[in-house]
Nucleic acid binder design. Structure first.
Lengths: 150, 150
DNA sequence: CTGCAATCTCAACCTAACTTGAGGTCAAGC
DNA sequence: GCTTGACCTCAAGTTAGGTTGAGATTGCAG
């Protein structure tokens, strides 16, 4: 049952692009950024493991959740070097992402509720609305948009 | 009760920057992008209305919600030309923003739930997980990450 | 062996959203 | 009336995340 590495287990960049939906140039770009490290063929062409598809998919998802490539790299760095990531490797990362997601959702929900409150109170026409009149966001002279923006 | 425009009702760019927390250069940049249109003093210096503070605050909030400056410009274009925006002017815009917010929250919540399901099912180690193995995101050969990414 | 599509590298370009710098002007206090 | 800080314009630089193009190889099919 030893996993032998047949040539057919390695994928070309075009194949990887097709399967992930990424462009070939984006994949090369990610390699530059060290998000992925394919091996090379005799003729210097990139060869990817099947597990790299998951890695790239993770990048797509994480980006969608608002992480920068730098942050994504930090997450991916948690994956084992040398061996194909296991379920629990990915689980740990998923949990980290989930936490971020929770924070982001809470933040947006809070903002929405404040926006609702603001619309409801009709204070938009006045000069003291905490949301719309943040004259001192950086100052210390009273309430400001910090309420909404922080 | 006619609102007279005393010189003291106009603010310099430095003052506006201080009150909004924006940098002077960012404010000038927004003028370039036609997000705001200050008048000029005799000596060609920018002079802002007090209502411009709200306008700039709106930009900050909308950006925070993920709108691009171009999209923000489109929203601001709904405000009246020539007169200071009223409460209901701002309300209409708030409602539009709120709708976007709802969509975004729903999207993130959906993603989170799928992520949860995926962690729970333990399928990460397998080759058929709809979330983690989107081999055909752009293809038409079956379920893929579309479930998560769309 | 030949042809041609897929790859390769490297440099340049792109959009968004600003910042920085150079060189010059304005205005308020002493 | 002079100094100093706030302003002005315009050009160029910056970071993120890629794309595009040129010119040279590679690798599979016939």
């Amino acid at each position: 049952m030893t996993a032998r590495l047949k040539p057919s287990d390695l994928l070309s960049i075009g194949e990887i692009a097709r399967r992930t939906g990424l462009s070939v140039s984006a994949i090369r770009f990610y390699e530059d950024k060290r998000l992925i490290e394919p091996v090379r063929s005799g003729g210097n062409q990139r060869r990817f493991l099947r597990s790299d598809i998951r890695r790239l998919s993770f990048i797509l998802i994480a980006q969608r959740l608002g992480l920068s490539l730098t942050e994504i790299e930090a997450e991916l760095a948690k994956l084992p070097q040398g061996r194909t990531p296991t379920a629990s490797d990915w689980e740990a990362i998923s949990a980290a992402i989930r936490a971020r997601l929770d924070v982001r959702i809470a933040e947006l929900t809070r903002t929405r509720d404040r926006l609702d409150g603001c619309i409801g109170c009709g204070c938009l026409s006045l000069t003291h609305c905490a949301i719309w009149n943040p004259e001192d966001r950086l100052g210390a002279e009273g309430p400001g948009a910090r309420k909404l923006l922080d």
